[in-house]
């Protein structure tokens, strides 16, 4: 395409360099022999060994993974429900408030969400810990799931749902056998998004967490404040690696599913 001028190419390449260079440097210096993260002194994996011997960090990682899995799953269920409510039931009492409550958390500064949830837990006399962090994560990540699933539902051909209902399928069965298989990739990417948001969160966790429920970002943050160390670089590299593997697997799965679906559709139209 002749439209892709040199200016376009340069701006895209520079943009991506800006986005990726800091992350690449962080990963590179996690393998640095020296304790300094700015002077290269040879290749070493000793910081990874140190990392696995750091019991505090390992405990925090375990808490983080449990919170993320639990909160992402519940957030996906609630978020998908909210997406269905917003796209399928256009008229119900309080819809405006509902859509407001779905979009507002997307941009709400984390300090406000965190503080307000903490004050809620205190007001109802709930002890802060694993449960409160999970509840908080569900609340802010479900709205991201809703947005992802909603965009898929909007481009969905509703006539096949109506056909299923006309043929006597119950709404639940229609949802499970017609709607869900089609929106599944969006639901899964919503789940992935909720998972990473939860793995990532520092501010809301710090407000809503209690003793014994320190998450990995909280631990990393408290160490970063004391100074930059290669050990933290190693922890970050592992997190980046985990997320990268997850994203690659997810994108391969979506691609395969897409190819399969197209093949099925072609077979159906060909009358087999």
């Amino acid at each position: 395409m002749s439209n892709w001028s040199r200016f376009n190419i340069v701006s895209v390449v520079l943009g991506f360099a800006f986005l990726y260079l800091p992350i690449v440097l962080l990963v590179v210096f996690s393998f640095n022999e020296s304790k300094l993260v700015t002077v290269w002194a040879g290749f070493s994996t000793k910081w990874y060994v140190a990392l696995f011997n750091n019991q505090g960090l390992m405990d925090a990682a375990w808490v983080t993974i449990r919170v993320a899995l639990l909160s992402a799953t519940i957030a996906t269920i609630l978020g998908t429900m909210a997406a269905l409510a917003l796209t399928r039931y256009t008229r119900f009492r309080g819809r405006l408030l509902f859509s407001g409550m779905v979009y507002a958390p997307l941009v709400m500064p984390e300090v406000i969400t965190g503080l307000s949830l903490l004050l809620l837990f205190v007001a109802i006399g709930f002890d802060r810990g694993f449960v409160t962090v999970t509840l908080a994560h569900i609340t802010f990540s479900m709205c991201f799931v809703t947005v992802v699933v909603q965009s898929r539902l909007l481009s969905f051909d509703r006539s096949i749902e109506e056909a299923a209902l006309d043929l006597g399928a119950t709404p639940v069965r229609t949802f499970l056998e017609v709607t869900l298989p089609v929106i599944l990739p969006a639901v899964l990417s919503g789940w992935m998004l909720a998972l990473t948001l939860s793995l990532d969160d520092l501010v809301i966790s710090s407000f809503t967490s209690g003793p014994g429920a320190t998450t990995l970002p909280m631990k990393i943050y408290s160490q970063v404040r004391l100074g930059v160390t290669p050990e933290i670089n190693a922890a970050c590299t592992l997190l980046i690696g985990l997320v990268a593997i997850g994203v690659v697997i997810a994108s391969i799965m979506t691609k395969r599913r897409e190819v399969q679906r197209q093949r099925d559709e072609q077979a159906a139209f060909a009358g087999r």
Binding site: Y89, A104, L115, L120, T139, M142
Partner: peptide
């Protein structure tokens, strides 16, 4: 029941964990 549930569950969740906390603040 299905359509009620789909609306009420996320609605109630957001009311309790998102809107009510602002009044407490």
């Amino acid at each position: 029941i299905f359509s009620r549930l789909v609306i009420i569950l996320p609605y109630a969740w957001l009311l309790f964990f998102f809107l009510v906390p602002f009044f407490i603040v």
